[in-house]
Every structure is written in structure tokens, then in C-alpha cells.
Design a binder for these strands. Structure first.
Lengths: 117, 117
DNA sequence: GTGGCATACTATGCCACGCCAAGTATACGG
DNA sequence: CCGTATACTTGGCGTGGCATAGTATGCCAC
């Protein structure tokens, strides 16, 4: 189900940025969301996700802030996209389009461009 | 034009295996073929490709053999797929289909499955 | 009330691998 | 005969996924 490590390197950051584009989320929530949204393909453990978040924050692509949860009242660390993160996500999307096109050209996969959204 | 390092990690080996599936090639030829076939997207330097070849050979996915070139008469080191390499390529293709589907589900890219070939 | 389990975040260290840089060797064209 | 293209090899650095472990809190069954 899960993809191999070296694919995760390329896809992980872009996937997280994409999820955070919709709405701010906290770490544990992201672990679950990634798993569900991709049917386990991009499922990553906590020890992969948290350092990834710290890394994205250090690069100024996302920013974290502590906020009390509505349900439990417990403090959770939410992350949201920064303007730079939005630009990076757009750049990542371009890279992925190019890459998918290249892999199709080689015949590794057979995907064709779909409708833009 | 060129994709970033972490994408190359996931795509590089599969791309090389795919090229070698058609016919045996030698290192320098592969550098050029990768560049041309993907419009520079998967272009990699010699210091990336050669170690990659050694690595694939160590894993038993390809095998190298010295052979005299038809044109110059010079010895070149050709590589061909092993049966295990063929299986690995099929597995890589499955991973890439899953990954592309996952990235599409997230909305990072908008590609849809094309016709099988 | 307490022991176990789910939730939620942090920290340490290993290992693989892309790539920069540098080196070697041969053939060919001017 | 010297520069350039071809062709292969090697050393070392930096990045980042992931296994492992640790901390803390809230909930629920018994």
C-alpha cells in the first residue's frame, strides 16, 4: 500500500503543503488526513511528519501556532501556509506536472493531463 | 527545466530501468537519452548516473559487460536488465501509478489514467 | 481510583543517495 | 600536437525519511 522511501521524499512535502492550503491542521491530524486522502499511499508515521513540519517551518513555508481545541480544550499546535508556502506549492505542482509528463513519455506510467481545477 | 533532487531520487532508478528495458545502453549514452527523452526533466550528470548504475548492478537489477563499439572500436560498458530488474521495473511502475493517483486525489496534479500500452 | 489505551508532540541517531568536484584515459579534428 | 568530446571512476558532503524512545494528558472500563 505504502510507497517506498525515495518516492516519499519527493511527494511528502508537496502533499503536506497541499493539505494545509485548504485549512490549518495539527500534526496528528495530518498523519491521519494523509493516510485517508491517499488510501494509505502517502501514509507517514509521526517520526516522519513532525520533522517534516519543523523543516517546512524553518524554511518559512508554514507557520505553527498553539491553539486550544474546540472539543477537548487541549492545546494543539496548528500549522498554516505562509505566502511563501503558497508560492512553493505552486512551484511544486509545476514540477510534478513536468515529472508526470516525463514518466509518461518514458512509458513508466500512462497518465494524461486531466481537467484543471 | 530540471526537477529537484528529492524527485530525482524517486524517479531516477525507474527511468533508467525503463530505458534499459528497450535495449542495452552504456553510461554516457544513458545520460544523453534521459535528457532527450524527458526534455531535460530527468537530466542527470555523470556523477549521478554512474553511481546509480553501480548501485542497480549491486542489487542485481542490471548487469554490465564490456563490448567493442561498432563505430569507434572503443570498449564501452553496456548495461542490460536482469530478470530481477524486469520484476523491479514492473513493481516501480505500480508504485508510480499509485503515487500519481494519490497526488491527483490531493489535487497537487490533475492527471487521469491513460490507455495502457 | 487506577490501569490501560488513544491522543499529541519532541528528540536522537542511522543510513541511503543525489550531486559537486576532481581525476583518468582515449580518439579525433584542426 | 594540442584542445575538445567521449567515456568511466571516485571521494566527500548534505539532506531527509524513519525507527526508536521519551514525555504528557485525557478518557473509559472495571
Amino acid at each position: 500500500m505504502k510507497i517506498e522511501t525515495d518516492l516519499m521524499r519527493g511527494a511528502g512535502p508537496a502533499a503536506v503543503l497541499k493539505l494545509l492550503e485548504r485549512r490549518p491542521m495539527y500534526g496528528y491530524e495530518l498523519v491521519d488526513a494523509l493516510d485517508r486522502a491517499t488510501q494509505g499511499v502517502l501514509a507517514m508515521g509521526q517520526s516522519t511528519l513532525y520533522p517534516l513540519l519543523y523543516n517546512l517551518e524553518a524554511k518559512g513555508l508554514i507557520e505553527g501556532y498553539w491553539r486550544q481545541a474546540d472539543d477537548t480544550g487541549k492545546e494543539r499546535k496548528y500549522y498554516r501556509l505562509t505566502p511563501r508556502g503558497r508560492k512553493r506549492l505552486a512551484a511544486d505542482a509545476r514540477q510534478w506536472r513536468r515529472l508526470t509528463a516525463a514518466m509518461s513519455a518514458l512509458g513508466v506510467v500512462s497518465f494524461v493531463p486531466g481537467v484543471a481545477r
